[in-house]
Amino acid sequence: MDGPDIGWYLIVAALLFGIGALGVMMRRSPLIVLLSTEIMLNAANLTLIAFARQQGDLDGQIFALAVMAVAAAEVAIGLGLIVAMARRRIVLDVDQASALRG
């Protein structure tokens, strides 16, 4: 294969996953948190595809394709929730969003 080893792709994927995880844990805006989960899923996809190339096996690509669809579904529901909360005039802050404390 031309170019970098699979390992390089995996490093990129791992860094991306970490960045996404950090975003989910540290950010307060639900929109950005949702975007961060997308980054995590994409990192996982990159890993799957890299391994598919490594193995010469298409299962990984199929998996990644399914994940894309699922991620889109998750985003749709997440955005629906955010819009619904905005319409109900609920403060958009995942940490403070809470009558649910105690």
Binding site: A84, R87, R88
Partner: peptide
């Protein structure tokens, strides 16, 4: 996997409709 993916998308569509039609406060 293919079938389930389509079900998941359908569910998301329902969810979008249900949540999107939330009345304004």
């Amino acid at each position: 996997a293919f079938e389930i993916t389509s079900i998941v998308l359908l569910v998301a569509a329902i969810g979008g409709v249900v949540l999107g039609t939330t009345p304004e406060k």
